[in-house]
Design a protein around this nucleic acid. Structure first.
Length: 123
DNA sequence: TTGCTGACGGCAT
DNA sequence: CATGCCGCCAGCA
């Protein structure tokens, strides 16, 4: 059987991977959002969207990471827990991210463009 | 090792 | 727009 790199990799390496992903999340600027897949790609780990979710779900409540700026590909909050859902939404709205009537964020408008020059979004 | 699960995603219906 | 199905991956029983 063909072993898969990620699973067999030494703990230290998997740890480094997690750090890299978290670092990307940490770099999402206020008022912008990124998708799970986007974070993974940005970290050089395409196809690891689920891992991003797993990581964030295990995040300590105290974390200073802007975990709330990560949404699914549809621009919606992906939390199962309704309590957490409202929290994430509240945090985003507090920094200017708008949700439409179907609880979606317009990614074309709020998606974070890594490396793109900081510029005010058109109102 | 196998099987099931999940803060995912893309595509077909 | 909603569902369902399937691929993808790490974690865990």
């Amino acid at each position: 059987m063909k072993p898969r790199a990620g699973r067999d990799a030494p703990a230290s390496e998997r740890d480094e991977v997690r750090q890299r992903l978290l670092a990307v999340v940490d770099s999402i600027p206020r008022g912008a959002v990124a998708t799970y897949a986007q974070v993974a790609r940005e970290a050089g780990l395409p196809r690891h969207a689920r891992l991003v979710g797993a990581l964030l779900s295990a995040l300590p409540a105290r974390s200073s990471l802007p975990w709330h700026r990560v949404l699914n590909a549809q621009g919606r909050v992906s939390l199962r827990d309704s309590r957490g859902c409202r929290e994430q939404r509240g945090l985003l709205e507090a920094e200017g991210v708008a949700f439409d009537a179907r609880d979606r964020v317009d990614l074309a408008r709020f998606r974070w463009r890594a490396g793109a020059p900081e510029r005010g979004r058109p109102r």
